[in-house]
Design a protein around this nucleic acid. Structure first.
Lengths: 206, 206
DNA sequence: CCACATACGGACTGGCACGTTTGTTTTTTA
DNA sequence: TAAAAAACAAACGTGCCAGTCCGTATGTGG
């Protein structure tokens, strides 16, 4: 058999993947340990072994995993400003509306406001999201342009669940917005590489 | 005592208000009958009397109630195009970030994708939201500009729960976006009346 | 005034999810 | 190779929530 750390890593990965899938497809209210384990193909004992506090240990790791993945792909493009990153993410959403790690993060983030314990154990990693993904400097207020882009990004992510959702229409509407918001020139240079790296990494959702 | 229909109306209103408050403050995952009743100051028996199927009868009425309120305020401004309505809502969010009926609707809407029964019983009223609030014509694909505004509106609504939320900063970022998106001239004429009507109706959240 | 319907309060119950414990297998290490 | 630790599996108990039922009170129509 495999080494212990390999098995451990594999099991944790399966649990994280399953959690993301459920969050994206069904939302936080549908998230339960039984369901996660069924989908991951592991026992509840295994989940509780790796994450003794259940969701309170699991969900911070879920967020961190998604953040690491996105941040490392960003890092491979070289140093980027906050605005460049946000425009790239918007173009990414435009090109591949299926790739929706941000939905899982949004679900956890919104659920945390109704669960003090969850809010506590995810606070650190959510601060990391702001810093590493959105380039937000901890003490400072957000830049207007950056915040507007974040809002647009979040809203566009959620639109996927609207009854009148249409990938092409969403793409057209984001393009309409982009034409007026003047992304920095560097973005269009980086775009092919960025989209290619997004296509290469297997999507979280089948 | 009051007449029966008066009592009935009052109780239902209390339940709807309490539900909205919980949804806005804590999210859908924290929504339970016990909690709703506690907050509304009525018994579970009363809730089950007016809404025999629990949330499946209550939540469609919640959405409809919020929709009616917003739509009637819109109607009092005279006939408006979809774009004019969306810009007005964005300005409304900008001016009073506390008034967040849209968050409650978003919560129910997102929860519905993980609960087939909820999706079924809310489908009709959500279609109404698209038509009456966003001016979406049922068969047609959405206009790019309109959809972009919807995304921005939804994203900005959610930003309220971010750890770096700041009403003034959000206002500045929406203003930044507005300056580039060129709202129709009629909007700025209607704005004072619109904001005044928003301020007059008591906010759903204390 | 009486029969009835409606509005409401409260209790009972079943199921499900979570927290915990205990047992078994596999790998590591001394 | 034997002991220990880790990875997993499975069951048990408990608490909460929703679905249901029944009792009561208050209006309502005849």
């Amino acid at each position: 058999m495999a080494t212990q750390s390999e098995r451990s890593f594999l099991t944790q990965n399966r649990l994280i993947r399953a959690t993301v899938d459920i969050l994206v497809e069904q939302g936080y209210a549908a998230l339960g340990e039984q369901r996660i384990c069924m989908r991951a193909g592991v026992s509840r004992g295994a989940l509780r072994h790796h994450y003794p506090q259940g969701r309170y240990d699991l969900l911070p790791n879920v967020v961190e995993s998604l953040l690491d993945e996105e941040a490392s792909r960003m890092a491979s493009l070289g140093p980027l400003s906050a605005k460049e990153r946000l425009y790239l993410m918007l173009y990414g959403l435009m090109a591949m509306p299926k790739r929706q790690a941000s939905v899982a993060i949004l679900e956890i983030w919104m659920a945390a406001r109704g669960d003090a314990k969850l809010a506590r154990c995810t606070q650190a990693v959510f601060d990391d999201v702001l810093v590493r993904l959105f380039g937000h400097v901890p003490g400072q207020p957000a830049d207007p342009e950056e915040l507007a882009l974040r809002c647009l990004l979040h809203g566009a992510s959620l639109h996927r669940f609207s009854s009148d959702y249409d990938g092409e229409v969403l793409q057209a509407s984001l393009r309409w917005a982009m034409e007026r918001l003047e992304p920095p020139p560097k973005v269009s240079q980086l775009l092919p590489t960025w989209l290619e790296s997004a296509a290469r990494t297997e999507p979280a959702l089948a």
